[in-house]
Design a protein around this nucleic acid. Sequence first.
RNA 1: GUGGGCGUAGCUCAACGGUUAGAGCGUCGGGUUGUGGCCCCGGAGGCUGUGGGUUCGAUUCCCACCGCUCACCCCA
Length: 420
Amino acid sequence: MAVKAVRGFKDILPGQSENWRAVEDVARDVFESFGLREIRTPVLEKTDVFVRGIGEHTDIVEKEMYTFPDRNGDSLTLRPEATAGVIRAAIEHKLYAESGTLKLFTMGPMFRHERPQKGRLRQFHQINVELLGTDSPLSDGEVIWMAWDVLHELGAQDLRLEVNSLGCPACRKEHRKDLNLYLEQVSPDLCPDCQRRSRTNPLRIFDCKNQRCREVMARAPLIKHHLCPGCSDHFGKVLDVLESVEIPFVINPYLVRGLDYYVRTTFEILASGLGAQNTVAAGGRYDGLVRSLGGPDIPGVGMAIGMERLLLLLDSPSSRMTTDIFVAALGREARDEVMPWIRDWRRMGFVVQMSYEEKSLKAQMKEANRLGAGYVLIVGEDELDREELILRDMKTKEQIAIPMDDVISRVENILNRGDE
RNA sequence: GUGGGCGUAGCUCAACGGUUAGAGCGUCGGGUUGUGGCCCCGGAGGCUGUGGGUUCGAUUCCCACCGCUCACCCCA
């Protein structure tokens, strides 16, 4: 039995990897235009980073983490999300001391032991943004703005931005009290899942898909009625940012997040055509997180884009190999002659390929065609004798003679012309 | 963790329980000297996911396991 990849772990093959890089490039450009800098943190952290960061009683921590003992007994975990690790690094290196607001982005693989399905893998990739050290609503707005811009720039269609405010711990506490009271009354009418949720994560009941639960929860006390003046004002200003840069949104008062650290602003960008896992980007504010990881009490806001989901909805075609010039050398002598030219063109940045086998010209032409060559340089005995080579334009089928003593720069010029 | 669907060539898929398991695409070779794509001809490539059972005979029917996939749950 041949070896296979681990369940839920996927290879990114040639043809697709080019699309990955294109997406990453767009994201980098967008983030840098907002003044962010890239950080890369390890995929492995002490388990405690996530337990303290994400919250002990979240599904992620309770049943989805790849956790195992290190050889010395430390409990280690493959990161299930990026924020906790980035903040750990920021604290460890005191990055927040450098400038006013620490503006970071990162991208890479995350790991969660869930049952794979469309848009959900055990190793998946995220593009993350974290802004640390400010509680200005402008920063909330910019985080959403960045997510929107990346998706927009890539041409993603049919997006819906949903926003909500969860309030600060104070208003949450009030709301929670009211909600619990209400839930006690209606508990018998809820589905078994929601009865469990009413003890573990009551906010989740709001987005239960069960029809009866929805009806019951339609009359439940909402967070927005419990926002303190500070939170209410903050939320309003976030929405102002979105309006002023013309990002369409809807307020979803039921929107909650699965990680404990979120406060105030939360948002999700949903896309059609992703199946059941239709959130392509999401994020929010996490003011208490830095402190709970042992750092100073500084606020933060961030977001994550799901790479695989994004690529799914871009429906990027598999890219083909292209070659600037294929050098068809016939015979040993020609091969030796041609090598330094190939070296020089490659150093200039052109894609130059040749056949590794001694093959007929016909076979080499076929190979050149398969490799998507724009030009083929034919070098055989006749050409060496005449000191004049043949350059074939594969598109127009035109062939021109190139004097051998000037071949490097002549071909360079022609290839550069083709670039434009 | 729970349910549904599906496992046949590198890929997409055929084959009533019955000869040697096929097709398209891809790949390799050929269609006379040193010129690609299109066309024509030919070749290679399969323990039909694995193991059992029913049957004279199983790719086909049944069971188990494994894998993939979609959904629940949860989330990016």
